[in-house]
Amino acid sequence: MPIVVNLDIMLAKRGMKSYELAELIGITTANLSILKTGKAKAMRFSTLEAICKALNCQPSDILEYVED
């Protein structure tokens, strides 16, 4: 998929663990793992909003378009 999720990079920049973010935004670590590994087919705006709020970043910091 040409949309790359850079969540792990942002987590490293903020020094936050996956389970901490999962707890903060109210999703399971399994779902966060799906998002991190790029297996997710879609992302809710509410989830994106919660991630941006928790990591204090913009959606463009998390999602990136890379041509195949």
Binding site: I27, I34, L35, K39, A40, K41, A42, M43, R44
Partner: peptide
């Protein structure tokens, strides 16, 4: 269903 399951 698969798409729904993989929607985070």
């Amino acid at each position: 269903k698969e798409e729904n399951d993989l929607t985070v």
